[in-house]
Design a protein around this nucleic acid. Structure first.
Lengths: 228, 228
DNA sequence: GTAGGTTAATTAAACGATTGATTAGCTGAG
DNA sequence: CTCAGCTAATCAATCGTTTAATTAACCTAC
């Protein structure tokens, strides 16, 4: 992907990471075009030429930043997804009487983790890059979608299908999963309108709790699970 | 707002509008920084100097474009919102037995209009600008939110409150409205992921119908309205 | 152990291209 | 003639990138 040295002998690794970090911030805050390589290099305490040296240019730096985001997203959601996946397999093999409610709890674990990430201000730079890629996918979009994103959507869809009583089609299950995603995504994609409409100064912990409560209630009846 | 002539005597009005139109496209596709004034002028068949002449510069052109979007959005949603508002007032004064279902139908009119706009490719340039403003609000955000956006959210919240049986708080009603918005917004904000996950080549009319069906079902149980 | 050489890491300086904006001058209708 | 509408040319600034030169680390030879 990047044209830099394949295995840097740990010498310039810190400079590389510093560039990557300030690149994510800059690209997230200002977008690809508006972010200047000079400003990124200065923020990283490096020389502008290091960008070409390590990443082969601005484009390479951007793709490396997207890859880094995908990795971090996988690191955050991976353990939760793996645990849910495992629990679902067990439920599939020996479904208890309250199977739908159990499936719902698993889905809720996923949603809770996701909304926690999306609501936190720490994920703002990621989220902006991801949303921008959604609207005009570049070559970097495959890095994002092919990674944890498609896995998450697929897992949520499977859970929704599992707790369905069997009347709805697979396409409807996928649409339901997108509806769930939308209710989570709105708190990042339309954050400014959310804060204004709720008359919240910011989106902190108490606000997140209220969001989670409302979200869980919405999902429960959307999925036809009477009791959680 | 813009520094141009306040009342152009209808002579250069067509050039002004051509600039505005290509500006919306360019800003939507590439963002504020990436869109070049030269490219916008060329696309409009005008001279780059006309941007400073009419709008006082790139910033002024952008704000004028946002204002234009807010106006168009108001023109599209305004009639529907007004009709819903009127019907709601009548329901408020003499609530029939099936009042909740009637309120729901009104909310559905709003949602259906909104998803129709957001899904259509014609609204893509608007939507990108709006979403960008949501994530990093500039001075232009007030133009957008102060316009039809806040009115739409407020109206939806009132409808949700009206069809609620009375147990939930106003804050919960607002959160529910945001949940509804999220389920609509996802088809624009995460369009690339939507297409991939649904395995749709594009988002046309048949796809929109399926979305509406699923959406209406989700809303109905979210709002506790058994029958539509 | 240390001198010398090899190579990766980093720097300063400059490149051409493009940016937003400004200028002065031209056009044509009233 | 007058003046708003419009054009061509040019401005300084900044962009991403490249170049050549310098520094720092490591490895080998003695």
């Amino acid at each position: 992907m990047s044209e830099g040295p394949s295995q840097p002998p740990s010498r310039g690794e810190d400079a590389r990471e510093a560039l990557l970090r300030s690149a994510i911030t800059a690209f997230g805050e200002q977008g690809f075009a508006a972010a200047s390589t000079r400003a990124i290099a200065v923020a990283a305490g490096a020389n502008p030429a290091m960008i070409s040296y390590y990443f082969g240019g601005k484009q390479g730096l951007y793709e490396a930043a997207v890859q880094h985001i995908a990795d971090q997203m996988g690191a955050h959601m991976g353990p939760v997804a793996a645990r849910v996946q495992r629990a679902k397999s067990e439920l599939d093999q020996a479904p208890p009487a309250d199977a739908p409610a159990r499936y719902f709890d698993l889905l809720w674990s996923l949603v809770e983790a996701l909304v926690g990430i999306l609501a936190s201000e720490r994920s703002a730079p990621w989220a902006r890059i991801i949303l921008r890629e959604q609207q005009q996918p570049s070559a970097a979009f495959e890095i994002l979608y092919g990674g944890p994103m498609s896995r998450l959507l697929a897992l949520a869809t499977e859970l929704i299908a599992a707790m369905d009583t069997g009347r709805r089609s697979p396409a409807e299950h996928r649409l339901t999963a997108l509806g769930v995603l939308g209710q989570v995504l709105v708190y990042r994609a339309a954050r400014a309108a959310v804060l204004r409409h709720m008359e919240w100064p910011r989106l902190g912990d108490p606000e997140l709790q209220k969001i989670k409560t409302a979200l869980r209630r919405n999902l429960r009846c959307m999925l036809g699970v009477d009791d959680g």
